[in-house]
Amino acid sequence: MNAIPQLPPMGAAALRLAPLAPLSFVAARFARSLGRRHPALFARLGEEADKIFLIDPTDLPLAFRLLPRPEAPRLEAVRREAAGSWDARVAGPLAALIGLVHGAYDGDALFFSRDLVIEGDTSAVLALRNAIDNEEMDLAHEAAALFGPFESLARRPALELAAFAARWTGVALTRPGQGTRE
């Protein structure tokens, strides 16, 4: 496996200074949109949907609390030291975590190579990993969907922004092979 890109320190430093409220606002809308667009993801989680997940990008100065409740999924940005209690923690470089969503990496392989750390409820982590893998999501397309009726207008700028961010950070924000295709 090729080395997993790390977010440049400048990007991490900028996020360290950034207020969390706007990020949490976008994250909350993102989670609700996922709930509408990917109901099968939550169905596949089964009883593990009641758990609290800490998604912990180790090259960022913050983490995300995910509560994948089918009726009202929640995602919020938190400082690591104030993350509160959780049932399961998944930690690794941001590029690895996003690569799992995009099917660029295999979760077991990342675990074997120690690029991914799992703590807490292993069943919950497996269920989340398998549910996400089956959805074949593209985060840039999901971001465009936040614009509701203007999704089709937002898609191209979202893909171009994702491509620009990927060039700068090394973190691929679209599924492999998708590029800026619509």
Binding site: G103, A104, Y105, D106, G107, D108, R129, D133, N134, E136
Partner: peptide, 10 residues
């Protein structure tokens, strides 16, 4: 069968 789509395809 417990592995991801990425593993399967490769």
């Amino acid at each position: 069968r417990q592995r991801s789509r990425a593993y399967t395809e490769a």
